[in-house]
Amino acid sequence: MLPSEAMDEQPQNQSGGVLLRASDLCFAYSSGAKSQSFELIVDELQVHAGEVLVLCGASGSGKSTLLSILAGTQRPDSGRVDLLTDGVTRDLYGCGRQQWKASRHDFGLVYQDVRESLNDRRRVIDSVLDPLLVHDLPKSNIGACVNVWQRIVELVRWGGESERQKKQRAIALDVLRRVGLQAEQADRFPKNLSGGQRQRAAIARALVTQPRLVFLDEPTSALDVSVQASVVSLLRELHQENPVRGYVFVTHDLALARQLADRIAVLDRGRLAEIGPADEVLRSPTSNAGREMVAIARRELDALG
């Protein structure tokens, strides 16, 4: 049973419909590394429901920045990013702070650094519970004032768990079990987990609100190849489980992209060099950057037979 009560009541997007649309994005920053100003310009980019879009590129190509802009955490200099849910279009950077906050449970984010992706001073389960607490999920059907009263009761009964807390805890544990972490591991501190387990916990935190879009910023680049394989398998299973959820995945490893991607976007120095179905991009890349990346990946992997 997946704890999706909140989501089940809403009509789901049709598979293939546009979920996120970015248009006329422009973002300039001076990257401290080379004191060069850098410009990211993307005219049009769409993420469809149920697809895995992989952003590929060398370091410094702006792929992580583009991901943050799409995910609504980095305001672009100009342009808009629209989230299309249930027939409502919401400009992530044009709507107010309240609207932005309310839309956050539709986004799940997983970051690269295994050591820093979870708060080392808190148990894994607490970190995973956070999004539920912030968004007050699952939505309760009692009125707001009752809710306040409930809060007071929770405060007074401090130490024990209310029904609601138990419910949230059950949801979090369920998601953690889904990504392969048992209840006993959920109660540990991150330092007592291996790198792969920590990254699974980070994925669980991104999934706990049942988001429509999940953004992953090189989630496996700090992991061993063997652990990466199991995380990638997990991501594929998760993708098959919920066919309407969109994924945006940043990596510089084309072979890894191949395992997950429906579409691949190649970024080159802040521009979208090419975008298309994964097979096509890998078979016959049209841009220079794409050709170079494919050639290198092919040469490396050929040696493995």
Partner: peptide, 22 residues
Amino acid sequence: RGLLGCVPRLDEKRTLQPINGE
């Protein structure tokens, strides 16, 4: 062989075979 099975390949979209356990 397990390590090699974990390496994603470019040509086929075959399932990666992670090594059992950690």
